[in-house]
């Protein structure tokens, strides 16, 4: 029988992030109707209230590491805390959410506990009880998907955001068993050489990819190219795009070619940085809808909207590889004109 440990951390507001509930949902799929041993481990500053939020998840035990040093995300202290939890529970399977904090520390944890690790898990097939557990993830930047299993334990499965149904259930009081990785003096100097000074906003302000938005607006290189009058209209393009983002409450993604222009000192869209890039060397965000404008290209660039459910495109070329066979609708039109009109309709 597997022993499952779900590792979670609280965010800066003291709550469990949304993806923590998804990881919990994934773990519940592994339980074969509740037969597996199932423990929760949470790290952070004050974790009591967060533990209560998942009190009804059916875990057989709740463990926690609470310490002021864990109020911040830091490899050394996080690793010590997680290592202590694993030592306590001795799990065979560990499920954890793919947050930036855990993405940094869990590989090190795998080494430290002599375990295995797979990240970006998009689905888990628990099989019948006693059968091998299979997991799926993408390789080569979302170009191909593999289904695989491992014999060795412990096995850490780090699940991707948006891939699993979040656990929804009752809150409840839990008997949180505290574990301390450190002696009374707290973490030693060897794990606190790093001091976290805080969170800063990225250069392009709020206009980066926001996973919570329903709509992803993808701006392609065509926005910065010469238009029908033989001139570029970059300031106008920027105004239209920003107006649209505001009106549609959309997240902004961009093709690689447009972002590259930004870093090469050409007349560029100042609202864009590499943080906006989707596709082969950018992110592959999950959104309900995606609207691509002035995009031009084929695989591999199109992987950028592999996980976008409903896709439409505005492009002057009906055969554009970005759209053909990839979008639900392609509007053959000038994106400058369409977005200007759209902004009117959206009340910008």
């Amino acid at each position: 029988m597997e022993t499952i440990l779900v590792l979670l951390h609280i965010d800066e507001s003291g709550n469990l992030p949304r993806i923590a509930f998804e990881a919990l949902g994934a773990a519940c799929e592994l339980r074969h109707g509740g037969n597996a041993n199932f423990a929760i481990g949470i790290i952070g500053g004050d974790i009591e209230s967060a533990a209560g939020k998942i009190g009804g998840c059916g875990a057989t035990s709740f463990f926690g590491v609470s310490h002021p040093a864990l109020e911040v995300s830091r490899y050394g202290t996080d690793l010590a805390a997680l290592g202590a939890l694993v030592e306590k529970v001795a799990p065979t399977l560990i499920v954890a959410p793919s947050t930036s904090r855990f993405a940094r520390v869990l590989p090190g944890l795998a080494v430290r506990i002599g375990g295995q690790i797979d990240t970006h898990i998009t689905s888990i097939d628990p099989g019948a009880e006693g059968d091998a557990v299979f997991a799926e993830r993408w390789y080569y930047r979302q170009r191909m998907k593999a289904k695989f299993t491992r014999d060795a334990r412990p096995w850490i499965l780090v699940v991707d955001g948006g891939a699993f149904e979040p656990w929804k259930g009752e809150t409840g009081s839990v008997a949180l068993q505290m574990v301390s990785p450190w002696a009374e003096g707290g973490p030693g100097d060897n794990v606190t050489r790093t001091q976290v000074s805080g969170i800063e906003t990225g250069e392009s302000g709020t206009q980066t990819i926001r996973p919570d938005a329903d709509l992803l607006f993808v701006a392609g290189a065509g926005w910065a190219k010469k238009q029908a009058d033989g001139q570029t209209h970059v300031p106008k393009a920027e105004k239209l795009i920003l107006g649209f983002l505001e009106g549609a409450k959309a997240s902004l993604g961009s093709s690689k070619s447009l972002v590259d222009q930004s870093s090469e000192g050409q007349a560029v869209l100042t609202c864009l940085s590499h943080l906006n890039q989707v596709g082969q060397t950018g992110t592959t965000p999950r959104h309900q809808k995606g609207l691509a404008t002035c995009c031009h290209g084929e695989e591999p660039h199109v992987v950028g909207w592999r996980f976008v459910q409903e896709r439409r495109a505005v492009n002057l070329d009906a055969n554009c590889g970005w759209a053909r066979g990839k979008a639900d609708v392609v509007y053959v039109a000038d994106a400058f004109e369409v977005v200007e009109k759209l902004n009117d309709l959206l009340g910008v």
Partner: peptide
């Protein structure tokens, strides 16, 4: 030997694109 792959595939994602001209 640490990972056993059952299958690797390129998911077919071809959509019927409505072209609005």
């Amino acid at each position: 030997n640490s990972i056993h792959y059952q299958e690797v595939a390129i998911p077919q994602q071809k959509r019927e694109t409505r072209v609005v001209k």
